[in-house]
Design a protein around this nucleic acid. Sequence first.
DNA 1: CGCAGTATTGATTGATTTCAAGTCAAGTGG
DNA 2: CCACTTGACTTGAAATCAATCAATACTGCG
Lengths: 256, 256
Amino acid sequence: MSVHFPDGAQRPDAGIHCQTCSLSAICLPLALKMEDMDEFDAIIRRRAPLVRGETLCRQGDTFSQVFVVRTGSFKQVVLDEEGEEQITHFHLPGELMGLEGINENVQPGFLIALERSTVCEIPFHQLDALAERLPGLRNELYRSMSRHMGEDHHLIRLLNCKSADERLASFLLDLARRFQRNGHSPKNFRLPMSRTDIGNYLGLALETVSRMLGRLQQQSLIELKGRELHILQPEALYQFSESHPCLGHALNRQKG
Amino acid sequence: MSVHFPDGAQRPDAGIHCQTCSLSAICLPLALKMEDMDEFDAIIRRRAPLVRGETLCRQGDTFSQVFVVRTGSFKQVVLDEEGEEQITHFHLPGELMGLEGINENVQPGFLIALERSTVCEIPFHQLDALAERLPGLRNELYRSMSRHMGEDHHLIRLLNCKSADERLASFLLDLARRFQRNGHSPKNFRLPMSRTDIGNYLGLALETVSRMLGRLQQQSLIELKGRELHILQPEALYQFSESHPCLGHALNRQKG
DNA sequence: CGCAGTATTGATTGATTTCAAGTCAAGTGG
DNA sequence: CCACTTGACTTGAAATCAATCAATACTGCG
């Protein structure tokens, strides 16, 4: 994984700007003209890097800003009444975090760094004020939220119908797609999260995760050494992830 | 279910306006002043009512507008490559449909009326143009999308962890909450969808749905006759829906 | 037109089965 | 030591198969 910002100096704001950011092609200001980008850049706050396991925001915090992953990755963890943790999302570079907080005005979960990571903080009311004047930014904000919704639906379908091995296949392809989006190879990348986290996210025991990954490997669909992944046959992996028909339900066509 | 619009005349636009709509307290223009609402009202197109089973929009249609349910209800059905149907959402009055289409610029699924229903169509570019000038509307649009995301996450948690009976309990409570939002009793309402649809949505066989509903009834948590539902003990039902701990996964705390 | 008769669909309930995935346990390796 | 793998064994939740019932729609006939 290449270092996007050779920030020898650890201070935040050490010469980091949207205009020169390697993520500018996929990040919010994607559609902005140079002069508009200056304005956008001015409302961003860059944090000092977070170390692995560090918490960026806590569930229940008042919502006032959104975050963009600049480098590294995060998990979003929701804690329910009984204290059960549930990972609802992984966030990769260029992805916007915290948008669900708008409605209830609180952060919906913990955001925890999976590795050394850096983020941009964007105060939401300033973002909105800017969006008012910049249609391109506004549009990108809509699209970002819309994309989020689409991804959630993908996950819903996944959890609803798929067996453990299919879930894993889907999961890896999803990561691949998102890594590709931010300029990585979609075939070779490093899983930023533990098997336990994957299991939690997909609703499986960690042993099952390990087993199913093994199975995908036996079939030569992937090659996995530790967290280093090679997708050998993306096409076949996709076929596999969509293979088995859903359960018996969903078949009977009827009106309502 | 009361008739919101005694439209003896079946023509669309037959004297229907946001200013007098019974949903105005929860719908998009909720935050608008009277004069702004006139403008908003002017971009809305009212369709003739749809009958049960009728399709409002098709998966893959070009995205150009969003819809608001005025009366009745809809299911959103996604068809995958193998022709499997999967219901990803039910939509009740006052709820916005089609927002996921923004990103990919296509409608993400079929919207099918579950009963005789009416909708408002809102051309998206006009909505955006108006949102540019009306911060209240813009905000409501954000909130609506954010709420959507939150609901999806709720469903994700549900599918990830919960057993069949807990799913049913959660599902009913979710409907109750949403019916309450648009002015109905949260304890007594009519399920607009069939058991088959519920099963599809929750990832269960229809027999299981029926069985589990029966079980909830035996425990006197609900009373159900056909599709007519009374929630007898909302509090206990909630306890029940959250009761069993998740599977073994998710317990081991660790960094990443 | 109305009405009995029939088909169709939706829902409930019971009995039986199964296999996917969890659990427990031991071992590997960075 | 922790993250992961692998194996053997178990289980029980939910699918399947099947029979029945209720409600609604449809049909043709007097």
